[in-house]
Every structure is written in structure tokens, then in C-alpha cells.
Computed example of a mutant assay.
Amino acid sequence: MVSLVVLAGTWQGGPVPLVSIITPTQAHNAIHIEALWRSLESQVLPPGWEWEWLVQEDGTQPGVRESLPDDPRIRYDALGVQIGGAATRNTAVARARGDLVAGMDHDDYYEPDGLTALVEPLTDDPAVAWSCARMRWRNPDGSTWVKPDVYPPGRVEPGTIADTFVRTDDFPFPASITVYRRPHLLAHGGWPAVARSTDAVLLAAFSTRWPGVWVDRVAATYRRWSRQHTVQSSDIGIRDVPHVRGAIAQRLAAERALARVAGT
């Protein structure tokens, strides 16, 4: 089998397009990462496409590597220090070789052909810079729920997502599974240094600059379980403080103010 480390080097204008899946993780909380691997292994991407999985471990006592199979498509790394979710993701992006970067948390997983559904819009239309789709919530009791669509499927113009958030105080997309064009993501600066909701703040800001696509299908499952960060009372509380939830509204207001000044 040829390593994707070699194949990926030919991607820019070459024959092998590549998508880099970014998964931040920690040893004490990675008990579901094998399910994510199984969902990745079964993905059938568009013809000619390949994927690499960048597992980036945060924390002072790394231990996730032993849980991962021996596969050249998996590129594991651990810094051995605690740097936080946003910095962990950005560290992985710096190692990525794909033209596309896909976010996926270690306790979630792709539905069959879910990654393909997210990649295809970016191969079909070079003008769009991101894609996102529905997620199915899987609760601890086995029940499931899918958030109703806010927008019709298809192209989402710049500023639409941030406008919706400011107007409704609710984020319309499951931002954690968004696929981005890597050059655009690098130019944007990657994930923002906010305490929580980094995926949402990133997509809201990124999508004010570039159009994207809302995909008409369930592409992944979001696992709700007792030890995940987002169900802890401390995590819920910090997402509500002004410097986190206000980041989207403040950035949108600042961009529009600067645009008005530039237009005068």
C-alpha cells in the first residue's frame, strides 16, 4: 500500500485529491474514538479522492496512540502539553496535507457516505469554500433527534449564518463537522482562541468572507454522553458568558463598521 504522505505531496494540481480529517482528543476522554475510526474506514469518497486522519492529542499524559489501528492514513501526534481545543486543532491543521480540512470530534462519527456528501459540493463548485450538513443527535437512552433545517439546501451566501445567529441567538448549523478549503482556513487564521464554541465561532466568522453549501442529508452522528465536555454545567455556563457568545455578534458588527468606513 502506498502511503498517503507521498500521495498527498502531489495533490496541488496533481492526480490525488486529499481531505484531512482533524480530530482533537485526550487520553482520559477518548473511549469512543474507535467508532469514529470504523465510520471513516467505511467511507467511499468521490472517485480519485483519498483521506488522511490527523489525530491530535492534547494533554500532559498522552495515551491515545495505543487505541488506534496501524494504518498509514492515520497521522497521530501529541505535544505532551495542555494547549486547549482551538490550539490542538490548529496544530493538526499545520500538519495537514489535504486541500480540504474536515472537523470531527473524537466522540462523534460519520454516517455512511457522510464525508462524501460534504466533499462533493467543494469539488463541484470552486467558488464555495465550505460545506456543512445535518447531524443526528444520539442520546444516552438511545433516542435520536435531528435539528430542523434553517436554510434550504444549496449555496449559503456570505454573512447569512452570522445574521441568523445575531437575530435568533441560535446557531443554525452543526459547525463541528464543517469541511473547509485548507488555503482559505489558513488565511482566515484557523480556529479562534475562545473558551468554548470554537467551531461555531469559526464558521460564523469564516462564512462572512466566503460562500458555502448546506447539504441536504444527515452526514454524521453527534454522541451525547455523560463525560463529554458540552454536557458539563461548567461548559454550558461558559458558553453563555459575553466573551464567548458575543464573539460572533461583535465580529459581525466590527466587519460591517469597517466596510462602511472603506466605502465612504
Rank of each mutant, 00 (worst) to 15 (best):
V2C: 04
S3V: 00
V5R: 11
V6E: 12
V6Y: 12
A8M: 06
G9A: 07
G9Q: 07
G14C: 06
P15N: 09
P15H: 06
V16R: 06
P17V: 09
V19D: 05
T25A: 14
H28K: 15
H28C: 07
N29S: 06
N29Y: 03
A30P: 06
A35K: 11
E41D: 12
E41T: 07
S42K: 10
P46Q: 03
P46L: 08
P46V: 04
P47T: 08
P47N: 04
P47Y: 03
E50F: 10
W51M: 06
V55G: 01
E57Y: 04
D58K: 05
G59C: 11
T60R: 09
G63K: 02
R65K: 08
S67I: 02
S67C: 05
I74K: 00
A78Y: 04
Q82W: 10
Q82V: 13
I83Y: 14
I83H: 15
A87Y: 06
A87T: 05
R89G: 13
T91I: 13
A92Y: 01
L100N: 01
V101F: 14
V101H: 04
A102T: 03
G103S: 14
M104I: 13
D105P: 01
D107N: 03
G114N: 03
L115M: 12
L115Q: 08
V119K: 13
E120V: 11
L122N: 10
T123E: 15
P126T: 07
A129D: 02
A129C: 13
C132P: 01
R136Q: 09
R136P: 00
W137L: 15
D141W: 12
S143Q: 05
W145E: 11
V146Y: 08
V150F: 07
P153C: 02
V156K: 00
P158N: 02
P158K: 02
D163I: 04
T164W: 01
R167T: 15
S176V: 05
I177R: 09
I177G: 11
V179S: 12
R182V: 02
L186W: 01
L186C: 09
A187H: 10
G189C: 07
G190D: 03
A195H: 09
T198M: 13
D199N: 04
D199Q: 08
A200E: 14
L202P: 09
L203C: 08
L203Y: 02
L203R: 13
A205P: 00
R209P: 00
P211I: 03
G212L: 05
V215F: 00
D216T: 08
R217Y: 04
V218N: 02
Y222I: 03
Y222P: 07
R223P: 01
R224G: 02
R224A: 07
R224S: 14
R227I: 01
H229L: 13
S233N: 13
S234R: 10
D235H: 12
D235V: 10
I236K: 15
R239A: 15
R239W: 13
H243I: 04
V244F: 12
R245W: 09
R245H: 11
A249K: 00
Q250D: 15
R251I: 00
L258H: 00
L258A: 13
V261S: 07
